Amino acid sequence: MRVLVTAGASGIGRAMAEGFVATGAEVWVSDVDRDALAALPDGWNARQVDATDEVAMRALFAEIAQAGGLDVLCANAGVAGPTALVEDIQLEDWRACVSVNLEGAFLAAKYAAPLMKAAGQGSIVLTSSTAGIYGYPNRAPYAAAKWAVIGLMKTLAMELGPFGIRANAICPGAVEGPRMEGVLAREAALKGMSRDAVHEGYAAGTSMRTWVTAEDVANMAVFLGSEASRRISGQVIAVDGHTENPDPKV
Rank of each mutant, 00 (worst) to 15 (best):
A17C: 09
E87L: 09
P137W: 03
A38S: 15
P178H: 05
S129Q: 06
M158L: 13
E159L: 11
T243Q: 14
W94R: 04
S10P: 00
F163P: 00
G78W: 01
T210K: 13
S207F: 10
V239E: 12
D35H: 06
C74I: 12
V29K: 06
P172D: 05
S194H: 07
T23L: 07
A38D: 14
E227C: 01
A238P: 15
E187I: 04
V250R: 13
V98D: 09
L60R: 03
A174E: 05
Q121E: 12
L126W: 05
A25Y: 05
S233D: 01
A167Q: 09
E187L: 15
A46I: 07
M153R: 07
V183P: 07
A17R: 03
A112D: 13
G69M: 06
G164L: 09
E200V: 12
S207A: 13
A228F: 06
I133R: 14
A96N: 04
M153H: 01
K249M: 13
S194N: 06
A51H: 02
A197Q: 14
A228W: 00
V236I: 14
A38E: 13
S123Y: 02
S10R: 14
V239L: 09
S10Y: 02
I165N: 05
I165R: 04
R47C: 09
T6C: 10
A22C: 02
E187V: 02
A204W: 04
N101A: 10
G8M: 08
W211T: 06
A67D: 13
A197I: 03
G104H: 04
R209E: 11
N76R: 01
G177W: 05
T6V: 10
N101P: 12
D88E: 15
A108P: 02
V27K: 03
P114H: 07
G8D: 12
V79N: 02
G135H: 03
G43C: 10
L160G: 07
I64Q: 10
V21L: 15
A9S: 14
H199Q: 11
A204I: 00
L60S: 00
N245V: 07
F223Y: 14
A148N: 04
S207V: 10
R209N: 15
G120T: 08
S123V: 02
T23H: 01
S30Q: 05
E244V: 09
G69C: 09
T127C: 10
R179M: 15
P114S: 12
R195E: 11
P246S: 06
A169L: 04
M193W: 13
G19H: 01
L152N: 08
R58S: 14
M158D: 11
T206S: 11
R47V: 02
D196M: 03
Y142H: 12
Y111E: 11
V21R: 15
V175D: 13
G8I: 02
K249S: 15
E87S: 08
V3E: 11
D93I: 00
E227F: 00
M193R: 14
V5P: 10
M16I: 12
R186P: 01
N76L: 01
S194T: 15
V100F: 05
P137R: 10
E227P: 12
F223N: 00
V125D: 00
H242W: 13
L60F: 05
V175I: 14
R195W: 13
M16V: 12
T127L: 15
A218T: 07
I170H: 05
S194K: 04
